[in-house]
Computed example of a mutant assay.
Amino acid sequence: MNTVAQIFVGLAGAFHLAVFAMESLLFRKPSTYRRFLIPNRAEAEIAQPWAFNQGFYNLFLALGAFGGLIAGGDKGHAIALFSCACMAGAGIVLVASNPKLARSAVLQAGPPILALVLAASL
């Protein structure tokens, strides 16, 4: 995998690591749960178990991206790119399910899509 693609894999991993922190560690803060379109504390308390679990999905995707980069070689890069494919797919589902979340979907899916395209073309 070329260096530019690796940079986008790293960016994708960093984004998903940040989302893990928001969903699993910081979700009860009003500034955090409102980012997920949850309007008040009562609804945030209901959504918190879902968010906690979802955060770990994002952590594992980030670890796949970073771990694949660290491992290197064909197998490591395959792991990193598989993680990126999952991230890209989730971003596409996000915007398809709620167009109001297009900005979030671009942040989620943009870097991994670029990593996949760059890895395939260079």
Rank of each mutant, 00 (worst) to 15 (best):
L11E: 05
L11C: 07
L11V: 12
A12W: 11
A12Q: 01
G13S: 06
G13H: 04
G13I: 11
A14P: 03
H16M: 10
H16D: 02
H16G: 01
V19Q: 02
A21T: 05
M22R: 12
M22A: 03
E23W: 05
E23K: 12
L26G: 06
F27P: 03
F27N: 02
R28I: 04
R28V: 08
K29C: 02
K29H: 02
S31A: 00
T32N: 01
R34L: 08
L37Q: 09
L37K: 09
I38Y: 01
P39Q: 13
E43A: 15
A44D: 05
A44R: 02
E45V: 08
E45A: 13
Q48W: 15
P49M: 04
P49Q: 01
W50C: 09
W50N: 09
F52V: 03
F52W: 07
N53A: 14
Q54T: 09
F56T: 00
F56H: 06
F56W: 05
Y57E: 09
N58L: 15
F60T: 12
A62P: 00
L63T: 06
G67A: 08
G68M: 05
L69Y: 12
I70R: 11
A71K: 07
G72P: 01
G73W: 03
D74K: 07
K75I: 09
G76S: 05
H77M: 13
H77Y: 15
H77N: 14
A78G: 12
A78Q: 15
A78V: 13
I79C: 02
I79N: 10
A80M: 15
L81R: 02
L81M: 05
L81Q: 10
S83C: 04
S83A: 13
S83E: 12
C84V: 08
A85Q: 09
M87W: 08
A88G: 12
A90F: 15
I92P: 07
I92V: 12
L94D: 01
L94W: 02
V95C: 04
V95L: 05
A96D: 07
A96I: 06
S97M: 14
S97A: 10
P99L: 01
L107G: 09
L107Q: 14
L107W: 04
L107C: 05
Q108D: 06
Q108S: 05
